[in-house]
Each structure stands twice: as structure tokens, then as C-alpha cells.
Amino acid sequence: MQDEKVVLDSMSMQRALTRITYEIIEKNKGVGNLILIGIKTRGVYLADRIANRLKKLENTDVPVIKLDITKYRDDQQSVGKVGNVAENTVDITNKNVILVDDVLYTGRTVRAALAAINEIGRPKRINLAVLVDRGHRELPIRADFVGKNIPSSKQETIKVLVSEIDNRDGVEIKQP
């Protein structure tokens, strides 16, 4: 059996999302011009949660775009599927975009996401929010909002769990 270690429990995960939400408000001076883009799959749930929190605080609906980046990844072979990269059609031109993902690792996912966003519009600015930053970057990419920095070896797997699909919240490290 693999050794699984909880590095972020449900409470700490909630707190991290709460803090990121406050930081987004602080940095953007309000939420009027904001759009959240969640990278499928777990990034979307995290973006939804941030949007919920913003709604509670500011009573404003911040749109959430679900982004499928499969065909933009340079580390996977394209399966040649044709489809929209984003399910929702919201105009992102001149908007402040917050790109949301669960784990920031090599940076390749984010690069692919930036390419995909490029296809749906031209925002004013893009910031990156991640729940976990585990290091080992291969590209010059950094997050503006980070839930937790977790030092990890490349052999380990870091898994973000969201109750919507995993039945519970938390972040776990799996030893090889």
C-alpha cells in the first residue's frame, strides 16, 4: 500500500481559499472587472469556490470559465479532438483574469492554459492562483496567489481532493 500523508486538511484548505479570495480583492481593488478561469478538472472547482466566496463578500457574480487545455499540452500527444477549449462563452477582452489551478509544478499546464486563453480573447491582465506550489519549475512562471508551498521530491505525487468529486477536501502526498 502506498503511504499517503495529509499535508493540508479540510480546514486548512478552506482557510487557504479564504485567504486567496481576500488577496484577490486586495490586489484587484474590487471585483468588477474580474473573470475566473479554472483549469479542468479540480481547478474549476477551486475557481467555483473562490467565486462563491466573492459572491458572499461583494454580492457580485464573478464569471467562471472552465478551461480544457488537453490539446495545448506540449508534453502529451494531441488526440486530435476538436472542440471548444472553454465551455462558457464570456467575453474576456480587457478583463482581469485569474487563472486557477490545483497544483503548480513544472509550469507546463499553465503555459498550455495561457495558450488556450489566447485563443478565446485578449484579457487586460492574467494572474495565477494555485492551491499548492510544489516547486520544480521548468518554465519562467510564478503564481500570484498561493495557498500553500509544499516542498516535494519529483518522485512524490501530490493530490488535491475536492469534496465535489472526491467526497472530501484536502491535499495528500503519496510516496512512490
Binding site: S12, R15, A16, T18, R19, E23, D133, R134, G135, H136, R137, R142, V146, N149, P151
Partner: peptide, 21 residues
């Protein structure tokens, strides 16, 4: 208190312009 210290850690990271950890 944890929220407070975590927000300090975030600042530390941003101010030092650190990558990753």
C-alpha cells in the same frame, strides 16, 4: 492566528521574489 502568519509567509515570498518555495 494561522491565517495571520500565513499571510505573512505569502508576503515574504512575494517580497523576496522567490520562485517556488
Amino acid at each position: 492566528f494561522a491565517e495571520f502568519t500565513e499571510s505573512i509567509l505569502v508576503r515574504r515570498r512575494l517580497n523576496n521574489n522567490e520562485f517556488g518555495i
